[in-house]
Write a protein that binds this DNA or RNA. Structure first.
Lengths: 230, 230
DNA sequence: AGTACAATTCTTGTATATTAGTTTAAGTGA
DNA sequence: TCACTTAAACTAATATACAAGAATTGTACT
């Protein structure tokens, strides 16, 4: 599935991306190939080639002869990402309703239980992963894993925002798990109108609470011309 | 817009991609970094880094220590690409209908005339580009250029198929231009139901005539388990 | 004290050499 | 003739060296 191949390059790619996504490298921060190369104890070439991939996901920006920088989160792109996902996922869910199998049912139910457990334990990153898994399962059911991976590629900005929000506002988790369960029930009952409504509502929620997150991490975000004209 | 940067790497990227898209390098063919490096009179490093980008678009596949190969067209991925585009573009067009400006009108009308001209002159690549431009204009109108570029990234398989088809079946061009004009008229008239219908029909046509194209270029395509169980 | 300039340092871009794995084919034995 | 082994040739993977530009810092001059 992943086109990053053999060992060292993939290692570098995974590690660097992990650090960006989990905000160990923070938006705006300057990193350098040599820095990482010593930090990861690798030559500069695999680092460089990993960075090319990551650049394409718009998680870093490399300015020649100057430096490599972690990009700030672009809320405009996050909106576009949501738009795309809102266009696709309702169709995915409607189709999934007609294809549900016992195995998938079991997986989803396990996932839902895990979500509730994790929500109580206050582990934002685990919760994020479970949330992702939940949605992904329906794509798999439709044999649309390719589409899912495309979405992930394009939704880096949106996903960074979501991770940040989970860190900040933990009360939100209850709402999300509850919605997930309602969606699952609607799919089981093949209640098409309800599925469509719930999914749209649910996905729309992804970009809620912008204000809270923006206040908590103001310099993690790119300044767009429209927002914040004080 | 493009994240390919400075001169040499971008040169390499553009040239290699051009040759793949226009089938100068044909699907299945083995290429090698050294070969291209001498062919383009460049060092191996920029080539290599360009190839990493192209690999991500699934136009080539690199097998470590063995070789780099032009991928065959994956019709399953093409279908998924169409699915995504069918999900998005109707919404784009509906929104565009409410935002039409005189300048965009002029551009589209120019484009339509060019299409008709090019269709007569039998220039498949030019026609493909005009077709692309036509659709892109509506995305721009909605400030959704980002979405358009995502789609292009994911639709390489579909686009290669479309280019091939234009080479093969030239009678199709009349149908396409006619549909484009109908779509434009519907947008101008803000006839939402018609827009929705026409766009879905039009996009669905993208993968028509699989048989003809497959017969003409059988070994350009990946063998998927479902097709051709003779 | 402030500004302009120059040199040093740091960064990525590119080329080349080395390494390691894969493939191919030749060669050897039965 | 065939199966197996082995070596040679080719490929991408990685490391390293060098070049060119950007940024910073220090210094001299106003």
């Amino acid at each position: 599935m992943d086109n990053t191949r053999d060992n060292m390059r993939k290692d570098a790619y995974d590690q660097i991306k992990y650090r960006i996504i989990h905000f160990e490298y923070i938006p705006g921060q300057k990193i350098s190939e040599k820095l990482i190369s010593t930090e990861l104890n690798l030559g500069r070439t695999p680092i460089r080639e990993a960075l090319i991939r990551i650049e394409r996901e718009e998680l870093i920006e490399v300015i020649p002869q100057s430096g490599t920088y972690i990009t700030r989160i672009d809320l405009q792109e996050a909106e576009d990402g949501r738009f795309v996902r809102e266009s696709i996922e309702p169709r995915i869910m409607l189709q999934a309703a007609t294809m549900m199998t016992p195995e998938t049912k079991a997986k989803i139910q396990d996932n839902l239980k895990e979500q509730e457990k994790t929500a109580k334990l206050n582990q934002p990153d685990s919760f994020f992963d479970l949330d992702q898994d939940f949605h992904h399962l329906f794509y798999s059911l439709d044999n649309k894993d390719t589409v899912w991976s495309w979405l992930q590629m394009n939704n880096t900005q949106l996903n960074r925002f979501r991770r940040l929000r989970l860190k900040e506002t933990d009360l939100n988790w209850q709402t999300l798990t509850k919605q997930h369960r309602l969606i699952y029930d609607a799919v089981i009952n093949k209640d098409l109108d309800t599925i469509d409504y719930l999914i749209k509502e649910h996905l729309h929620l992804m970009l809620e609470e912008k204000g809270t997150v923006l206040n908590a991490y103001p310099d993690y975000f790119k300044v767009n011309d429209d927002d914040q004209v004080s």
